[in-house]
């Protein structure tokens, strides 16, 4: 029988044949992007420094470029594709996308990583301080330099989720 790599992505079960659909040594990021078409997973530095490839693995933020696909066996993976416009975190970023000082997203390349990180944070800590948010996103790089806006977007998301009383 074929050896399979099985996990769930955004709530859907995925089962791939190892050695055929996917190699055990493929990066999780490339499986998500190239095999499953989840191109919201961004790959930039490939050395764990930029955070663009961040996804949630069993609810925790991880770098999908620094993981072998085989290591996701049996895990529950969430990518940016899980969230729509109404997602409180995504909505907070979109709301602050106007060009100019204080914007939370300019080119948008890094945004999926930040959104995933914010979800991971708010899941464990629904009411983070500014310092805790800074610490949480410290593994992400935004080359447009929108850090200030990003921090505020996460604060807004926390507030929005608090009001709505709903988790992600």
């Amino acid at each position: 029988m074929d050896e399979r790599l099985s996990f769930t992505v955004n709530g859907q079960g995925v089962s791939l044949v190892l050695g055929k659909d996917v190699e055990a040594s493929d990066r999780l990021s490339s499986v998500l992007r190239d095999r499953l078409g989840l191109t919201g997973v961004r790959v930039a530095c490939e050395q764990g420094a930029c955070g663009a490839c961040t996804v949630l693995l069993d609810g925790r933020s991880v770098l999908s470029c620094m993981m072998f696909a085989a290591d996701a066996q049996g895990c529950d993976i969430t990518t940016i594709e899980a969230y729509g416009r109404d997602d409180p975190v995504a909505a907070s970023f979109i709301e602050m996308a106007e060009p100019g000082y204080g914007t939370a997203m300019q080119c948008g390349f890094c945004t999926p990583g930040f959104v995933m990180e914010a979800h991971g944070l708010l899941r464990e800590n629904p009411d983070p301080t500014r310092e805790e948010i800074r610490d949480a996103v410290s593994g992400h790089i935004c080359r447009c330099g929108c850090y200030h806006g990003i921090i505020r977007a996460v604060e807004n998301a926390a507030a929005r989720m608090g009001e709505g009383g709903a988790g992600a």
Binding site: G48, L63, M66, E117, L121, D135
Partner: peptide, 9 residues
């Protein structure tokens, strides 16, 4: 150590 994602892994 490093960043949250790294510490998660």
């Amino acid at each position: 150590v490093a960043s949250p994602q790294i510490r998660h892994m």
